[in-house]
Design a protein around this nucleic acid. Structure first.
Lengths: 337, 337
DNA sequence: TCAACCTGGGAAAGGGCTTTCTTCAGCTAC
DNA sequence: GTAGCTGAAGAAAGCCCTTTCCCAGGTTGA
């Protein structure tokens, strides 16, 4: 691997000069040397060692992102937004999948600190686990104290900059929509109990139930994915066949529920309504097209990255951006039969 | 940020000793010092600077992956496989989205070289662009010459280790399935002409057409995504309403086609059959469930990462792994009306 | 008792780059 | 002619680690 010293030697200049030319430093250099050095760079196919640069400059540039799983459409969309902004700013993004293992999240914070990440963006749901939250917070604080920036998406347990999707009011919208249509007994497919996203959305749903004076007795907790949704729909209906609507706390689970209902030959929305949450891109392409609560996922990602990169925020009180959601009515909901 | 020197000072030992203890070096150290150093690490919340380590060890560890777009389900699945294997080996993955801009691919190769990536995995389709291919090849060769490993997925233009999805024979399967069902005039929704994935799959399809002595006159080229597929389906049918089947060269486009057909009130598969390619997870959840050619995407990713990490392959002739595909019959195909 | 050998620990040399501090040549100005 | 600049280039320090090499003190064996 060619080094700067090689380039300098070949061009017959000092390393200092070579470095200045390659980095377009402010210090003026004669055109003659510039040409020679650039020629040497070309001939040797020289690329500066990023680690050495980062060490010498002691300036951080990469941005770390911790998600549950990039291949989940929810995070894929958020990541798309994150990447767009990062690329615009010429920043490298390091993506870490925690696969919903809290310990792995802790490990990744350390890893990103070791990598001298300029900022860490936590893009997965928070956990109801006081001990974990404490150790995560302490790790994040250490990171911030050493100059790192932290931005979270939808986690209220951390005193850092945050982009907060309106999970609670989205949950309310979800419930209100069904109750307004006249449904009285609805089944809820919730995500893992441990996730704050689940409880936030559920809280909104419960509030809607209170406002409309409806019970909310049938809640099934499942994995936040398609198969979890399918299984939960099955168990919900086995337990309570009279349900006229199913509210899933994310689209993946709603799609799973649709799959189950199709296999069980139950008509949607004629016999039962289904509503989701998130409005992932695929929601409009399933049949019936999914009524859901829209969250502008890519925008959430973009905003989080923008905050993380905004250095003027340094040493100010954490800023919180609320992101609203809206109902998107498609074909999977109707009044009860 | 605490440094090793801080730790050593606090523990009252030399940096050398501290380093040895922290890294669990082979050199024996007394228990007394070990305890003191680890305590200092804990108190200072010390994390070694990864850049300094990489510099000192001059050993590469991260793996670079260049995809078109992680948020595309096709790449999301591949990436999932890649990540799984990388994590098992304790390797960091740097994901780069080229968004199908060849120049950006070139830039990312440089960037990954600068980052001292141990390997680069090129996971997007190749381009029909001789000049680009040449410059990419030359950049990759430079990278390999300096000890980097290159693994490509589905690109035949590079003389490196490769995982090759059977795009051509998958295309054949695609066509054969429709012709066997009795379709005589089929419309093809192809991806961008510039991509080798498009032409490979199309070549298989043409071969099937020859074998079954059927014409293949209606090919629409479009973006490799849902909206491209919808637009292409519309133009195909505007041009030739008698078509009884549409073969899309990937599932996203097939789903777009289904969306268009639904909006145009054309029944699938009663009036027209639709077949896709890839078998993305969502293919089974659209209605009608999509008949498609299955490619084990996550496994492709896993194999590519395994090859990239397999050091025993160093200095051997490049290894090529073929990955077969199979037809998955669901509900979007039927004999012509 | 002394040479030969371990052993655990430290000093210091890198690794590749940036950047400050110097140096030196070439000018201007008196 | 020389003091005083200015501008361009180089020397060298420093970023944070790892690892080789070396040393002192303690063992062992003859």
């Amino acid at each position: 691997m060619a080094t700067l010293a090689d380039v300098a030697r070949r061009a017959g200049v000092s390393q200092a000069t070579a470095s200045r030319i390659i980095n377009g430093s402010a210090k003026p250099v004669t055109e003659r040397l510039r040409v020679r050095v650039l020629a040497a760079v070309e001939e040797l196919q020289y690329v500066p060692n990023a680690h050495a640069q980062s060490l010498a400059r002691s300036q951080r540039s990469a941005i770390g992102v911790i998600v549950h799983d990039v291949s989940d459409p929810y995070f894929a969309e958020i990541t798309r937004g994150l990447q767009r902004v990062a690329t615009e700013h010429g920043r490298l993004v390091i993506i870490c999948n925690s696969y919903r293992h809290p310990e792995r999240e802790l490990e990744y914070v350390e890893l990103l600190r070791a990598q001298q990440a300029a900022a860490i963006i936590l893009a997965g749901s928070g956990y109801h686990d006081a001990q974990f939250t404490r150790s995560l917070n302490s790790k994040l604080q250490v990171y911030e104290r050493t100059g790192g920036r932290v931005t979270v998406i939808g986690r209220h347990q951390h005193a850092s900059d945050a982009v907060m999707p309106a999970n609670e009011s989205g949950g309310y919208l979800l419930g209100a929509e069904l109750f307004r249509l006249g449904h009285r007994e609805i089944g809820v497919i919730a995500g893992p109990r441990l996730l704050t996203t689940t409880t936030d959305r559920l809280a909104g749903l419960r509030r809607a139930a209170r406002d409309y004076s409806r019970p909310l007795r049938h809640v099934a907790y499942a994995d936040f994915d398609r198969d979890g949704g399918a299984a939960a729909a099955a168990s919900l209906l086995a337990q309570r066949p009279q349900l006229t609507a199913i509210a899933a706390l994310n689209d993946s689970m709603a799609i799973g529920a649709l799959a189950y209902l199709r296999s069980a030959k139950i008509e949607v929305p004629a016999q039962i309504s289904v509503i989701g949450f998130d409005d992932m891109p695929i929601a409009r392409d399933v049949t019936p097209a999914l009524t859901t609560v829209r969250l502008p996922l890519a925008e959430i990602g973009a905003r989080a990255m923008t905050m993380a990169l905004d250095d003027s925020l340094r040493d100010r009180p954490p800023r919180i951006e609320e992101i609203g959601c809206e109902i998107v009515r498609r074909e999977s909901t109707a009044p009860p039969p």
